[in-house]
Amino acid sequence: MHSTNYIIRFVLVMTAIVAVILSLMSTGLKPIHDKNEAVYNKTAILSAIASHLGKDLKTLSDEEIGAIFSEKVTQKVLNMDGKVIDEATMMEMGYKDGLAESVDMGKEMKKPEEDRVLPLFIYESDKGNEFYILNVRGKGLWDEIWGCVALEDDMNTIAGVAFDHKAETPGLGAEIKDSQAFKEQFVGKKIYRPDGEYKSIYVRKGGAKDPVHEVDGISGATITADGVTEMMQRGIAYYEPYFDKINK
């Protein structure tokens, strides 16, 4: 039988040793973790325009993704009025390096609508075409869903999309991320009607009726699909003021 004194000493020493080991490891690996996270986010953004990269995104190394991002992608941060916020102002507002990639849409969505900032990535392909990659975020069935939408330089035609989710059902709602066929449907769809009215994209249960603004839903995933519709409607509309400004 050990004395109470011994037990207290044992527990204290154990706690101290564990704390030192874990904090050393955590701080030591922090730079690698940050780098991995940045590459992961960059890959997610580039996957919206995967077909225009000229290379297979999956085969690119971390360095190559970083290189594409620094050479061909222009990052801008917009406020809700469509004005570009410069890096210095962003840093004053508390964003790490003032770049669009440091904007966490999850945190932005929790702010009041007028205080949000929007990241915008402009990718210039080898052929000289510009693609505007927008970030959108909404709610699925179980939890948040989000995605990147790439528009061609007419700011109307969709060049590609990439979706992700926190907890949608595998095989049903999760197909918005996993199914290549679902994402390919968005390519070539328009967000404006010919008369200039904002329409966005509608994910229709039972099959698309309008070939320009609608895509087929996923059977068994109606609520997730409705979430995608809502996210596209609202998320793309946030960028409208900016598009209006540069189109004038």
Binding site: L22, M25, L29, I32, H33, N36, V39
Partner: peptide, 13 residues
């Protein structure tokens, strides 16, 4: 926790 930190550094996906 050690495994978690190591995996985060080795294979983020």
């Amino acid at each position: 926790t050690v495994v978690e930190l190591a995996l985060k550094a080795l294979d983020y996906n």
